[in-house]
Design a protein around this nucleic acid. Structure first.
Length: 497
RNA sequence: GGUUGGGUGGCCGAGCGGUUAGGCAGAGGUCUGCAAAACCUCGUACGGCGGUUCGAAUCCGCUCCCAACCUCCA
C-alpha cells in the first residue's frame, strides 16, 4: 500500500515516480476556464479529474498548494474579436460583470460535482503587472521583440538557441524553419508565423486595456499562466495540468516563456486529461456538439432519455482513466447510475456492519485486505480510478455476501472490518469525491426516517399475519412515490430512487 | 500533409507478452408469501493481413478506419 506514486509525464511520454521538489509538499497548477459563458461538461470532466488527483495527493499526506486560474482577459477569436468582448455585447454587461457572472456559475457547478475549491484561484486581470514584468524579462533575454506597440515572442530564435521548443507537444522544429521561407508574407507584425503575442496593442474599440511600457493594450493569451504559476508556485514547481487540447500551443508556449524569462522549466510533471466525447466527437462549445450540465441533470436534451444526477455523472467520469477519451452515451449513463447506486448501498451496508462475535482472521480476511491494498496500488499507478473502482466492486461483492450470510463474517477480524470501513469512507468519499445522494438520515430527513420506520413496522405486522393485501399495498404506494423497499434477512430497508 | 492517441464481448471501459479486470444489460439458479434487492453460475472479446515468440489483445511490419492537435477551446 505504500508503494511509490507514479504519474504519466507528457514531457517524457512515460510514467515516472513522483518526487516533489520539497518533500511532503506539492505545487500544482491547472489551467482554469475562460469565463465568458456557461461551463460545459468537457471542462467539468477535466476539473473532476484534477480534483481526484488533488484529493489523492492530499490523502497520501502531501500538503498540496493547488492553483487554478480564472481567465478573464479574452483570447482573440478568428474574427479578431475577443471572447470577453463578445460576452459583453451579447449580454449588455461590462467585461468584469461577464467575468463575475460566469465565475459564479463555474463555482456553483464545481460544487455541484463535489469538486474541492483550489487553494488559490488567481485572475488574469489581477496580475497585469506580473505579466508586464515577465514580458520585460523575455525582451531583456532577447526572445521578445516589439512592433508597433505589440510584443511578440521570437520562436525561431528561441528554438535555435534553447532546443526545447516543441518538446512537450512533439512539434518538429524543422517544420517551423521550413515555414519561414514559404509563408513569410502575410503575417503582419510577426517575424515568423509561429511567433505569438506577449502583449497586444489595443484597438480603439477594445474595452479591456491597461498601460504598459509598449502601448495601452492587453496581455497575450499564454502569458497569464506563466506569470501566475511563477508568482504562487515558484519558477519551477511540481505539476502542471490541463486539457489535452491545451498542449499546443498554450503549454508549449508557457514552457517557452518561462525558459525565455528565467531559463527555467516551469513544471517537472505535465499531466494532460483527455477529451469528453459525445457521439464519438469532441464535445465542444464552438461546434454545438454539446450537452450542458443542467440539460444532463434534467434530461432536457435529445441526447439523453432522462436526467442523471451530478454524482452519477461523476461516477461515470471516474469509470474511465483521465488520459483516455470518454464517450458519453445514454446507455453508458444508465449503467453508471445502477453501478453508482450499488456502490452507495454497499457503503451504507459496510458502515452499519457490526463485528461478528469471536471473529478470527481467515481466508476471507486475507482476500479483503488484498483487495484493499490493490485498490490503493491502482490509485498510485497514475491515478487509475477505473481499476481502483473495479477492486472496490469486488469488495462490494464480499460485503453483500457477508450481509446475506453467504460469506463467513466471523472470518473477518475486527481490525480488518475497521479497515474496510475506513477504506470505503476514504476511497469513495474522500478520494473519489463521491457523495451519497440517496442517503437516508441526513439533516432534515429525520422526520422522514421516523415515518418510514413506522410504515415499515406496520407492514411487518401485516406480513407476519399474512395480510399480503395490506403489505403489498404499502409497498406499491411507496413505489409510486419512488420509495423502494428492500426485504432482507435482517429486516427491511428503503431507498428513495 | 505534420504531430499525438485510439480501434477490446450487446453497451461503457481497464489491461499492453502467459493468470476471469470491473460496471451495465442478458441467461440459469439460491433466497423470498410474491416481487424487488442481494448472492451464486454462465458468455470466452480484442479492426484486417503477415511476422517475432514455446506463447500476443499486448512486441514488429504493412493495411484499413476513427479522434484530437497543428487557429480560441478542458
Amino acid at each position: 500500500m505504500t508503494q511509490a506514486l507514479k504519474v504519466y509525464n507528457s514531457l517524457s511520454r512515460d510514467k515516472e515516480v513522483f518526487e516533489p521538489i520539497n518533500e511532503g509538499h506539492v505545487g500544482m497548477y491547472v489551467c482554469g476556464p475562460t469565463v465568458y459563458s456557461d461551463v460545459h461538461l468537457g471542462n467539468c470532466r477535466t476539473f473532476v479529474s484534477f480534483d481526484v488527483i488533488y484529493r489523492y495527493l492530499t490523502y497520501l499526506g502531501y500538503k498540496v498548494r493547488y492553483v487554478r486560474n480564472i481567465t478573464d482577459v479574452g483570447h482573440l477569436l478568428d474574427d479578431g474579436e475577443d471572447r470577453m468582448l463578445k460576452g459583453t455585447k451579447r449580454e449588455k454587461l461590462s467585461p468584469m460583470e461577464v467575468a463575475q457572472k460566469y465565475t459564479n456559475g463555474f463555482h456553483d457547478m464545481m460544487r455541484t460535482f463535489n469538486s474541492l475549491p483550489p487553494s488559490i484561484e488567481p485572475r488574469a486581470t489581477g496580475h497585469i503587472i506580473e505579466q508586464i514584468e515577465m514580458i520585460q524579462s523575455i525582451i531583456d533575454n532577447g526572445y521578445g521583440y516589439e512592433k508597433n506597440g505589440s510584443v511578440y515572442f521570437d520562436t525561431l530564435k528561441f528554438a535555435e538557441e534553447k532546443k526545447v521548443y516543441g518538446k512537450l507537444s512533439g512539434r518538429v522544429i524543422e517544420d517551423l524553419m521550413a515555414e519561414s521561407r514559404s509563408d513569410l508574407k502575410n503575417q503582419g507584425e510577426k517575424k515568423h508565423p509561429s511567433d505569438f503575442a506577449l502583449w497586444m496593442k489595443a484597438s480603439p474599440e477594445h474595452i479591456m486595456r491597461w498601460n504598459s511600457p509598449w502601448s495601452v493594450g492587453f496581455p497575450g493569451w499564454h502569458l497569464e499562466c506563466s506569470a501566475m504559476s511563477t508568482k504562487y508556485l515558484g519558477k519551477t514547481f511540481d505539476i502542471h495540468g490541463g486539457g489535452n487540447d491545451l498542449k499546443f500551443p498554450h503549454h508549449e508556449n508557457e514552457v517557452a516563456q518561462s525558459v525565455g524569462a528565467c531559463n527555467c522549466q516551469p513544471a517537472r510533471y505535465w499531466l494532460h486529461t483527455n477529451m469528453l466525447l459525445m457521439n464519438g466527437r469532441k464535445m465542444s462549445k464552438s461546434d454545438g456538439n454539446t450537452i450542458s450540465p443542467p440539460q444532463l441533470f434534467s434530461g432536457d436534451s435529445p441526447h439523453v432519455s432522462k436526467g442523471y444526477s451530478p454524482m452519477v455523472i461523476r461516477f461515470f467520469m471516474l469509470q474511465s482513466h483521465y488520459r483516455s477519451t470518454l464517450d458519453l452515451t445514454d446507455d453508458a449513463l444508465q449503467a453508471a447510475e445502477k453501478g453508482y447506486r450499488r456502490l452507495m448501498e454497499a457503503s451504507r451496508t459496510v458502515q452499519a456492519m457490526e463485528p461478528a462475535a469471536g471473529a478470527k482472521a481467515g481466508p476471507l480476511d486475507a482476500e479483503i485486505n488484498q483487495l484493499i491494498d490493490q485498490a490503493f496500488e491502482e490509485m498510485s499507478d497514475d491515478f487509475n480510478t477505473p481499476k481502483a473502482m473495479a477492486r472496490l466492486f469486488e469488495l462490494v461483492t464480499r460485503v453483500n455476501g457477508m450481509k446475506d450470510g453467504h460469506l463467513p463474517k466471523n472470518e473477518v477480524s475486527d481490525e480488518t472490518l475497521a479497515r474496510l470501513k475506513s477504506t470505503f469512507e476514504g476511497l469513495i468519499f474522500q478520494v473519489l469525491g463521491l457523495k451519497d445522494e440517496m442517503a437516508a438520515g441526513d439533516n432534515g430527513t429525520n422526520l422522514v426516517d421516523g415515518l418510514m420506520d413506522i410504515i415499515i413496522d406496520l407492514r411487518k405486522d401485516a406480513r407476519s399475519s399474512k395480510d399480503w393485501a395490506t403489505s403489498d399495498k404499502i409497498r406499491d404506494m411507496l413505489g409510486d412515490l419512488e420509495v423502494q423497499l428492500k426485504d432482507g434477512k435482517e429486516g427491511t430497508t428503503w431507498v428513495k430512487n
